[in-house]
């Protein structure tokens, strides 16, 4: 990229969008800035392999590029990007279901990732995370999305409301229901000590 990563770092999301409309290369700043977070989000949401997640993200960013002029400054850039990526992920999952493919990931259960360089990460923690992910996968899509956006992406209710296009009250209700549903599932967990 001709501008370098340091140039990107100095720009706000909004500036990147504005500059991208003039010079395409700036658009890669946006991709680089959100890539890791969004890949993790897609994997957590759909339980897909890295390659599939990258494909989904690529398609989502093409949509973001096409709709760059749609961005309304009353919205948060991050929420807008998450919304498009979320919709792309959901539509990918629907298409996949309609083709009858299994959407459960094989060996690569890297959904609720704990940073690899975390020295304190114990085997028990990893196992617990994997079990939690398995339970998350059993939840309805909407419940999984609110839980992930709230606790993995650390989003506010307002931001979640913008991503999922739901009233904040509904977000809160769904979050409570999702937590109850998850607690119920964990309660039935045979590995629970």
């Amino acid at each position: 990229m001709p501008y370098g990563k340091s140039a990107c770092e100095q720009l706000s999301d909004l500036q990147i969008i504005q500059y991208s409309l003039i010079e395409l290369d700036y658009f890669s700043c946006l991709y680089d800035r959100y890539e890791q977070r969004l890949l993790a989000y897609i994997k957590r949401t759909l339980s897909v392999h890295s390659e599939e997640a990258e494909d989904i993200l690529q398609e989502a960013f093409i949509k973001i590029w096409r709709n760059l002029n749609e961005f309304d400054q009353q919205f948060n850039v991050s929420s807008w990007i998450y919304r498009i990526v979320h919709n792309e992920a959901i539509s990918y999952a629907r298409k996949k279901r309609s083709f009858g493919k299994n959407n459960i990931v094989g060996n690569e259960t890297v959904i609720l990732q704990i940073p690899a360089d975390d020295a304190d990460q114990s085997l028990a923690e990893t196992e617990a995370v994997q079990i939690l992910q398995q339970h998350l996968n059993q939840l309805p899509q909407q419940y999984r999305s609110v839980l992930l956006l709230r606790y993995m992406e650390s989003m506010s209710y307002e931001a979640i409301s913008d991503v999922l296009k739901l009233p904040e009250g509904t977000v809160a209700t769904q979050l409570n229901r999702a937590k109850s549903a998850l607690a119920k599932l964990i309660g039935k967990n045979p590995f629970k000590q």
Binding site: D25, S28, Y31, L57, Q58, I62, R66, N67, N69
Partner: peptide, 25 residues
Amino acid sequence: MENSEKMINRIRQENIHPLPKSVFQ
């Protein structure tokens, strides 16, 4: 090649442009 570069290349190769503002208006 980084994923962002792949994406930029694809946009260039497929000649994809942002939809004009008027469409959204």
